[in-house]
Design a protein around this nucleic acid. Structure first.
Length: 721
DNA sequence: TTGTTCCAGCTTTTT
DNA sequence: GCTGGAACAA
């Protein structure tokens, strides 16, 4: 194969990045500048031209989706199988190393991965057993604390003794948590990374082996790496300038969960022989959108510096719509989408992006009212559902009886007469004798202190797990899952549940069996794990495609965070208000405010053809009417790039001097909001909302006698009072 | 054990 | 003002 196919389609900067000699490389890739493309072509280049074996290449991403996409694109480009290529998430690769070298990592062979939900439950229970008050020690806060320490590479034993009471208590909990996890063979997400790091750090022979094996290491979204991830990368590339990272400091929006933009700056110190290449040509958006985005991000200090450009024309100005309230905002957006669709646009090319999930509701309502298909991203994922987690907990117990989190989860689910008292007794024994709950349960039975009924119930549970394990030996994976779902009583439990939710849960359990049937054992198998363990790991590490393919053409609704990496022809950035975006919690802190600004930049650069920005002059928030000021970010966009959309004849308000109106009153063609009117049949009322224009114009009126009604102006006889 | 009531909290999220 | 979780009563 000749090289031209690898480099022909690239621009100069991209080609420079792809063909650079093997050395530390920092690719600053702006939004829409072909970052994945560079990564994929770079890897292809090394295999084709650098004569590297796929075997000696590693590529790390943050999401499974990105990993899958990269692998597919490399296969496509080179037309070779890539199973020797290590492409995966930080967590996935760390997990693989821990499985391979469980003993050296001081983990039991059967260790299980715990997702954040599992972790929270474990912590809750731990706080309980330590007699700590939930309200004074919120489990979420404790979880956050522990993960933050691990993300920084700090173990409980590294923490200094302090006199700060709060800190001391946290430390105590952290210690107890570590003990519990190691006793149960449980590993949380942060632990995967931390232990992965320690594994290499403390085993020089292993480190040397992997350093020699991986001649090229690539990292996607480098600005999102946290301290321990970067430390791990440095270990692997120590003394060998073979780290190729792609990132964008302007798109760092995960600082709040430990990501360190500083890693980009430190990279330059730690790899003095590095080369920096900026990708600034954008292939996604119009010139106007890019100019506006550039202007906004320019307000951040301490950037690496980057300016996006395009040679594909200016396009339409960004549209700004000042809505009367959040209802009006939603109505406006939905109407525009309908117009887009009427003109032949695809619904799936239109996205509504918001700062917080709660904002989706008003849009959903309006979309539903107009029968416009839509899809909300985020929310519960398949493997996060309670019924699925319950079934998985049985399977995990079969694989590892010391898994306390799973034991606790299903010991009385479905109810089998094991009450709180019995469980407390088990916990007490486990605590006093440092046993797993399973072992403690056996001790408790042998003590013969329980009532006959409780004893029988408990024995019944233990026997159930044992029986399932025995029966499972010769079964196919999906048959194991099926047997568990049926014999555990879970299926029966949900079948009896009231129609509404139960049916869905039954379907989900059936879907789980199906997922097990389709599970590709060969593809995932490498470390000699059992099929069941592989499946369980898969469930923990890939909680299911939330954004699975939709068969219908749908309007896309999601937070700006989850829109990162995506693009849409038509984008609505809604709720552009102080307190919402930037969020209230961020306005007092420069660093956090700058992250909000980057988020705004990310949101804007999702748009290919047309960007709408909307805000509401009045918004119901927490049950209270608020009159927020328009977002400061709006003022950071030059007025000439913005065109204000007005459905009603109002006085022009330049974007640069947006005045909030308190309370707002906006005139319309014929009526005013707040206008008192009289209707022959309904009596007296006040105009609440006005929608549409011409023959379609409707007004919403709150009548004193009959309440709120929508009336078509063309038909309703209204007298202005 | 289930249904009810009360109360806090209320950005963003992947692994 | 709504939601989810926990405490409580029956």
């Amino acid at each position: 194969m000749d090289v031209t196919s690898i480099i022909d389609s690239l621009n100069d900067a991209q080609r420079q990045a792809v063909t650079a000699p093997s050395q530390a490389m920092l690719i600053l890739a702006g939004a829409g500048s072909g970052k994945t493309r560079v990564l994929v072509h770079r890897i292809a280049w090394q295999i084709q031209v650098g004569a590297s074996h796929a075997h000696s290449i590693m590529a790390v991403t943050f999401t499974n989706k990105a990993a899958k996409e990269m692998r597919a694109r490399i296969e496509n480009l080179l037309n070779i199988p890539t199973q020797n290529l290590w492409i995966g998430t930080f967590h996935g690769i760390a997990h693989r190393l821990l499985r391979r070298h469980a003993a050296q990592a001081k983990l039991p062979e059967t260790f299980q991965v715990m997702d954040s939900g599992d972790q929270l439950r474990v912590i809750k229970r731990l706080l309980n057993s330590l007699n700590l008050d939930d309200s004074k020690w919120p489990p979420r806060e404790v979880q956050w604390f522990i993960n933050a320490q691990k993300d920084e590479g700090i173990r409980a034993r590294h923490m200094l003794e302090t006199n700060d009471l709060h800190q001391r208590q946290m430390l105590l909990v952290y210690k107890a948590y570590e003990e519990l996890c190691s006793r149960s063979g449980l590993v949380d997400f942060a632990e995967l990374l931390l232990r992965g790091h320690e594994l290499l750090r403390d085993n020089p022979d292993l480190l040397e082996f992997y350093q020699a094996r991986f001649r090229h290491i690539h990292v996607d979204e480098f600005q999102d790496t946290n301290t321990i991830q970067y430390a791990w990368l440095r270990l692997l590339t120590d003394g060998k300038d073979n780290l190729f990272v792609v990132g964008d400091d302007d798109q760092s929006i995960y600082g709040w969960r430990g990501a360190k933009i500083e890693n980009i700056y430190n990279f330059q110190k730690h790899y003095p022989n590095h080369q920096v290449i900026k990708l600034e040509q954008n292939y996604r958006s119009t010139g106007t959108i890019l100019k506006a985005a550039n202007k906004i991000i320019a307000n951040n200090a301490g950037r690496m510096g980057k300016e996006l450009w395009t040679d594909s024309g200016e396009g339409e100005p960004c549209a700004l719509y000042a809505a009367f309230n959040e209802q009006d905002e939603a109505y406006f957006v939905v109407e525009r989408i309908r117009a887009w669709v009427n003109e032949g646009g695809l619904r799936s090319d239109a996205a509504i992006l918001y700062r917080s999930n709660a904002q989706s509701r008003q849009f959903e309502e309006k979309l539903m009212a107009t029968a416009t298909p839509y899809r909300v991203y985020g929310g519960l994922r398949f493997f996060d559902r309670a019924e699925i987690k319950n079934a998985l907990a049985y399977l995990r117990l079969m694989s590892n009886r010391d898994d306390d989190a799973s034991f606790e989860r299903v010991i009385n689910t479905p109810t089998r007469g094991i009450g709180a008292k019995t469980i407390d007794d088990i916990r007490a024994i486990a605590r006093d004798q440092s046993l797993s709950l399973w072992a403690a349960a056996i001790v408790l039975i042998n003590q013969r202190t329980l009532s006959a009924r409780a004893t029988n119930a408990l024995i019944g549970f233990l026997e159930l797990i044992k029986a399932l394990s025995v029966q499972a030996v010769d079964l196919e994976l999906y048959e194991k899952v099926k047997r568990v779902v049926e014999n555990s009583g879970l299926m029966e439990l949900y079948q009896k549940e009231k129609m509404d939710k139960g049916e869905e849960k039954v379907e989900n359990l059936e879907e789980l069996v199906n997922a097990a049937r389709l599970f590709n054992f060969d593809q995932e198998n490498e470390e000699g794990m059992s099929e069941l363990d592989l499946f369980l790991t898969h469930a923990a590490l890939e909680s299911g495609d939330n954004q699975g393919d939709d068969f219908e053409d749908c309007v896309q609704l999601m937070t700006i965070h989850s829109a990162k990496g995506l693009e849409f022809k038509l984008v609505f950035l809604v709720g552009m208000e102080e307190g919402l975006f930037p969020s209230q919690q961020s306005v007092d802190d420069i660093a956090r405010l700058e992250e909000e600004r980057r988020l705004c930049y990310v949101g804007m650069t999702r748009a290919m053809k047309q960007l709408y920005l909307t805000y509401a002059e009045s918004r119901r928030l927490y049950g209270r009417e608020s009159y927020p000021r328009p977002s400061r970010f709006l003022r950071e966009i030059p007025a000439e790039l913005i065109q204000e959309v007005r459905l009603r004849a109002t006085v022009s308000r330049p974007a640069t001097s947006i005045q909030p109106k308190n309370p707002p009153s906006i005139s319309t063609g014929s009526y005013q909001l707040g206008q008192r009117v009289h209707h022959d049949k309904f009596g007296e009322g006040v105009v609440l909302q006005i929608e549409g224009s011409g023959a379609q114009e409707r007004v919403q009126i709150n009548f004193k006698q009959v309440g709120v009604k929508w009336l078509m102006l063309a038909y309703a006889k209204l007298d202005v009072l």
